[in-house]
Design a protein around this nucleic acid. Structure first.
Lengths: 227, 227
DNA sequence: GTCTATATAGTGATAGAC
DNA sequence: GTCTATCACTATATAGAC
C-alpha cells in the first residue's frame, strides 16, 4: 500500500538468499522499534514494512502476519541473551557475581537497548488472550526456568524450583525500574535475587560456593515451532 | 454508533445522580471485561459502550476517552485491594501469614477474578510509551512501595527499601503463574517473598516477629489526578 | 520476493437533537 | 446525560502484475 519513494528494486546484495536474509533483518529491526514505540496493536504492518523500506507483502511472506513477527522477535532475543549469559557465567565465581550477570543482562539488554521488556510484555499480553500463543510462551518460560534451576543447583546446595521465582523477580524488578528508574539500585536487585535463591531452598545464609557454572539457559530455541 | 436493540431510555433508577453512578459502574465493568479479553487497543469504545448498554458518548462524558477508563479501572482496583489487604493484615500474626495475605490478594484478586494482572500490564505498556501516564503510574507504584516498606518495617527488624522488590516479585510471580498455572505453588511464592523481605534487609534467617500490622497500603487513591 | 491496487471493515471523536 | 449520525482516517489481507 505504501507509495514508492525509492528506486523500485535495488540489487545491492548479490544472491537471492542474501536479499531474503537482509529483508528479514530489516523487518525485524523495524518491528522491534515500532512495537516498542506504539505497541503491537498500535503499529500497523504497513508502518513496519515502510520503516524497513519494504512493503506489507514482504511481512506476510516472511512471517505470515504480525504474530509471527512478534514471536520471531522474542525468540531471537532469548537466544541472544541466553548465549551472552551463558558465556558470562563461566567467568563468574561468587553468587553475587552470577546474580549480577542475570540482572544486568535483563535490565539493560545487549540487543536493542531497553526495548526488550516492553516487547516481552506485549507478547505476554497477547499470549494471555490467545491459547496457542500462551502455549508457545509457556514452553519458552519453562525452558528459562529449567536453565535457572540447573544453574542455581550448581551454585548453591539446595534443589528447590526457584526458576519461576527468579525469572518472575527479574521481570518484575525491570518493570518497576522502567516506570521509575530510581526505584531500585543494582545492589537492591541483587539482594532480592539472593533472597529468592536462598529462600527458595529454605536455607538462610547466602551460599557462596564455587561450583561449575555456565549453565545452559538455552533449549528454548525451538520455540518458533508453535503457532 | 450502536444500533438500538433496547428501549430507548429506561427510567428504572430514580435520581439523575443514581443513574449517573449506575452508568459509570456499567461502563467500568464492561471495560474491565473487554480490555482483559481483547486488550485495550483491541477493544473499541463502541464495544465497551455496547456491552454496558450505553453508547460511546457516555464513555467520553464520564472518562474523557479510553485512557481515563483504564486509569479509573486500576485506581479502583488498587483502592479495593489495599482495603482488603489492610483489613486482613490486622489479623495476621506470623510473617508467612502476612506474606500470604499479600500473595493471595494479588494472585486471585477479590474483584473481577484474575482480570487485574492483565489490566495492570495493559496500563504498564501504555504508560511505558506515554510520559503523562507513566508519571501517573509511578505515583501509584511509589505509594504501594511505601506501603510495603512501612508494613515490612513493622514485621521485621530491617529498614531497607524492599517495596519495589516485593511489588515486582508479586507482579512477576503472577505473570509466571498466568502463563503456566503449575509453575509455582503458594508455598514457593511465599518462600520467595520471605527471601526478598529477609534478603533486602541483609539478614539471613526468617524474621518472625509479631509487630503492629495493618499497614496502610493506600494513599495511592489520589491517583486519578494525573492526566 | 516485491510491488500496486483494492475489498472490506473498523476506528476515535464530535455535533447536535432530544 | 444520552442519543443518532457522520467525518476523516486507518486497518488487515489478498490478487495479480512484474
Amino acid at each position: 500500500m505504501t507509495k514508492l519513494d525509492r528506486a523500485p528494486y535495488v540489487f545491492d546484495v548479490a544472491t537471492q538468499g542474501e536479499r531474503r536474509a537482509e529483508t528479514r533483518r530489516r523487518l525485524l529491526t523495524a518491528a522491534a522499534e515500532l512495537f516498542a514505540e506504539r505497541g503491537v496493536d498500535g503499529a500497523s504492518i504497513d508502518a513496519v514494512a515502510e520503516r524497513a523500506e519494504r512493503t506489507s507483502g514482504a511481512v506476510y511472506d516472511h512471517f505470515g502476519g504480525k504474530d509471527g513477527l512478534l514471536f520471531a522477535l522474542l525468540d531471537g532475543w532469548v537466544d541472544d541473551v541466553a548465549t551472552v549469559i551463558g558465556a558470562e557465567l563461566t567467568t563468574a565465581t561468587t553468587l553475587d557475581e552470577r546474580l549480577g550477570v542475570l540482572w544486568r543482562n535483563v535490565s539493560s539488554p545487549v540487543a536493542g537497548d531497553g526495548r526488550w521488556i516492553a516487547l516481552e510484555h506485549e507478547l505476554w499480553s497477547y499470549a494471555h488472550r490467545n491459547p496457542a500463543a500462551r502455549e508457545h510462551l509457556a514452553r519458552r518460560y519453562r525452558g528459562a526456568w529449567r536453565g535457572v534451576d540447573e544453574a542455581v543447583g550448581g551454585w548453591s546446595d539446595g534443589d528447590a524450583e526457584v526458576g519461576p521465582a527468579v525469572i518472575g523477580l527479574l521481570f518484575g524488578l525491570e518493570m518497576m525500574r522502567r516506570v521509575d528508574p530510581d526505584a531500585l539500585t543494582d545492589e537492591l536487585a541483587i539482594g532480592a535475587l539472593r533472597g529468592v535463591v536462598a529462600g527458595g531452598t529454605r536455607r538462610s545464609g547466602p551460599a557462596t560456593s564455587t561450583a561449575p557454572a555456565g549453565a545452559d539457559l538455552k533449549g528454548t530455541t525451538d520455540a518458533h515451532a508453535a503457532l
